[in-house]
């Protein structure tokens, strides 16, 4: 049932991306609408505002979670496309390991900055 679990995760991460990305978009770009509802988010894209969010564990967790689900969703989808277009056992082995390695490196690189800011 390995492929079923992989595809189930693809569906779950797709839903999570929609939720987490919606939070990100609303906070970063729709602050005028939030203001209409009485939520004061001033200058969300300013440096001070970003540093302020990076010092809160909930925001750091949210962005790391977004990074993880986007990486899984994108790279698993890319693996599926590669396997479909070049169906061979060798391609499958190489594509799988390259994608896993790339995913781990991208996750470490992407989560290092917010974690470092949070700890400092």
């Amino acid at each position: 049932m390995r492929n079923t679990y992989l595809r189930l995760m693809q569906l779950v991460t797709g839903i999570l991306i929609a939720v987490l990305l919606a939070i990100h978009i609303v906070i970063m770009h729709l602050n005028a609408i939030l203001g209409f509802f009485g939520v004061d988010v001033t200058e969300p894209t300013s440096w001070e505002s970003m540093i302020g969010r990076a010092s809160q564990a909930i925001w750091v967790g949210l962005y790391i979670a977004l990074l993880a689900v986007v990486l899984y969703h994108a790279l698993n989808g890319l693996r599926g496309i590669i396997l479909e277009l070049t169906p061979s056992a060798r391609t499958k082995r190489i594509a799988t390991w390259v994608i896993i390695a790339f995913g781990i490196i991208a996750f470490i690189g992407g989560s290092y900055v917010p974690l470092a800011l949070l700890i400092s």
Binding site: M1, R2, N3, T4, L6, R7, G80, L83, E84, P87, K92
Partner: peptide
């Protein structure tokens, strides 16, 4: 339930 099975 393979790489070229139902999920493709």
């Amino acid at each position: 339930d393979t790489d070229h099975g139902v999920w493709h």
